[in-house]
Amino acid sequence: MTGPIIRIDRLDKSFGALKVLDGLSFDVMPGEKLALIGPSGSGKTTILRILMTLETISGGHVEVCGEQLFHMQRGGREVPADEAHLHHMRRHIGMVFQHFNLFPHKSVLDNITLAPILTKGEPRAKAEARAKELLEMVGLADKAEAMPSQLSGGQKQRVAIARALALKPRIMLFDEVTSALDPELVEEVLLVMKRLAAETDMTMLLVTHEMGFAHEFADRVLFFDKGRIVEQGPPETIFRHPTHERTQAFLRKIIAAGHRV
């Protein structure tokens, strides 16, 4: 595919009277690593949740891998997507959550193999072999039989990354994946993500408050405020020479709060 892998076109999203996304449009090219930054409530997490179909949209269009995400054609007309269509589309996309959301009643290995076995019909042996490779990659090869409750936050998040990767999505969404971690556990998760970004051609969207990491990780940074993109560009430009005063104010505040840029 030569065109964008994600096209967001005049997207609106409201929660009741609250407008979270306001006529938002942007494209993402295959393999691009995107960092979404901005103050809380600016709508950046909502974008990821919409792409994962955890939220519906209020207006506009979202296209993923050349197909409409929330619409489908029926008898020559565009109608809202049904659950079967969403299921079909979700296989392109994986997500890692702020609070990990591992399945607490399943072992680390079963957390990773559950979906490949159920949704792709993979034989257990094959799914387990792949899960072990992924655990190796995230540095947790010895934790396959552990239960999530026995892991640290950083380990849980690395398992969650492995779980999302097991489905081989073309697009990975990372929603503030280090925000719930103790500071000393942040680095181990970021290391895994850095390696992932370097070694794969997956498209990645990252919502984060770790500006230093966003700088290093992203090809392009989007600065959001009040449901719109205020400014976007290469990290060097956004972080070193932001042109918009709201971007400057936001970065000043972040630096004042002790974050490294």
């Binding site: 994962m52 996309i93 994986g94 609070h99 959301n101 399945f103 979906a115 949704t119 779980r163």
Partner: peptide, 21 residues
């Protein structure tokens, strides 16, 4: 927790699989 439903959705389980597993 709501996060469990969301994780099930993000790993593309069907409704039935989400309930059962």
């Amino acid at each position: 927790p709501k996060g469990q439903w969301e994780a099930a959705r993000a790993t593309n389980l069907t409704m039935r699989q989400t309930w059962v597993h």
